[in-house]
């Protein structure tokens, strides 16, 4: 949790902007951060990779952003879903919500976990590129426009609270986004990281690299006493010895901390061929 707060502050250091409703306009906004951190968040100093990817697909000068795609591939290969576990502000928010005392449903989401891949393909890639305004010839960032709860929570709500002019434009689309965000955050109280596991396109992208990432979890079968403590500790209902570095694993380290025989540990692969 400490590292998540530290990363949140690193990406969103301008906390005073939450009260003034200003947006940072400096050169750091050229760069992306690996987590889902909306560039409309008043405190943000960097850009969201999902928003930037849609910006290009929706009709900027180059339809595919090599910078953003390369950044995501590099981040994925380096860290995999460790980013979901430690860097992403939406992860931090959901972890805080999960601490609320309420009945918890510890489901595995075996089938609905694949929705995030559909959202990545459809809302982040295909629809922004394929559906164009007849007059302008430009597409829309469909994920940001209709789904992204990070934009609603970290962008819209603080901006509307501080800026009455912007608040005046809030209508049906904002009401829809607010409903989506409310549903996602309510689900996060009951299910651990519901958004990351079921809906997040960034999580879907990084999960493709989880098995090849440099930072992984290592299992030493000689030390394992088959106590099952690691599986019990995993909020994602993964069984670490059987599904080591599963695409769903966010490398939170709960299994490592729960293992009394030190059979599990973080492993950093060396880049040698």
């Amino acid at each position: 949790m400490f590292s998540q707060i530290a990363f949140f502050l690193l990406q969103n250091p301008l906390l005073k902007n939450f009260f003034t409703g200003d947006i940072y306009r400096g050169r750091l906004k050229m760069l992306c951060t690996p987590g889902l951190n909306c560039y409309s968040c008043p405190a943000a100093v960097t850009s969201c990779p999902v928003g930037a990817m849609q910006l290009f697909l929706a009709g900027a000068k180059h339809s595919v952003s090599l910078f953003v795609t390369g950044f995501l591939v590099t981040s994925g290969v380096a860290f995999g879903r460790l980013i979901c576990g430690f860097v992403c502000p939406m992860g931090l928010l959901q972890d805080l919500l999960y601490k609320i005392k309420a009945p918890k449903f510890k489901a595995r989401f075996r089938y609905i976990q694949y929705i995030k891949y559909l959202i990545l393909a459809l809302f982040v890639m295909i629809l922004p590129f394929a559906v164009r305004n007849e007059l302008s010839g430009l597409g829309s960032p469909w994920f940001c426009k209709y789904i992204c709860p990070a934009g609603t929570v970290f962008g819209a709500l603080p901006l509307f609270a501080a800026n009455s002019f912007l608040r005046g434009f809030a209508g049906v689309q904002f009401a829809f986004k607010l409903m989506v965000a409310s549903a996602v955050l309510s689900a996060a109280i009951l299910n651990y990281r519901f958004f990351c596991r079921v809906l997040c396109p960034l999580g879907a992208f990084y999960s493709l690299f989880n098995r090849t990432a440099f930072i992984k979890i290592r299992f030493n079968c000689e030390k394992c006493v088959s106590c099952g403590d690691c599986s019990k500790a995993c909020h994602l209902k993964i069984e670490p010895p059987l599904e080591l570095n599963s695409p769903e694993c966010m490398r939170c380290g709960n299994c490592i901390r729960a293992c009394g025989s030190s059979a599990l540990s973080y492993k950093s692969e060396r880049a040698k061929s």
């Binding site: 409309s40 962008g155 607010l178």
Partner: peptide
């Protein structure tokens, strides 16, 4: 290659103003 193509400035142009789609308006 993305940096060479000037993509950073396109990202910056979008990111330094409130993204209306992101905030639902």
């Amino acid at each position: 290659v993305g940096i060479y193509r000037g993509e950073l400035y396109e990202i910056m142009k979008k990111a330094v103003v409130a993204c209306l789609e992101c905030i639902g308006i």
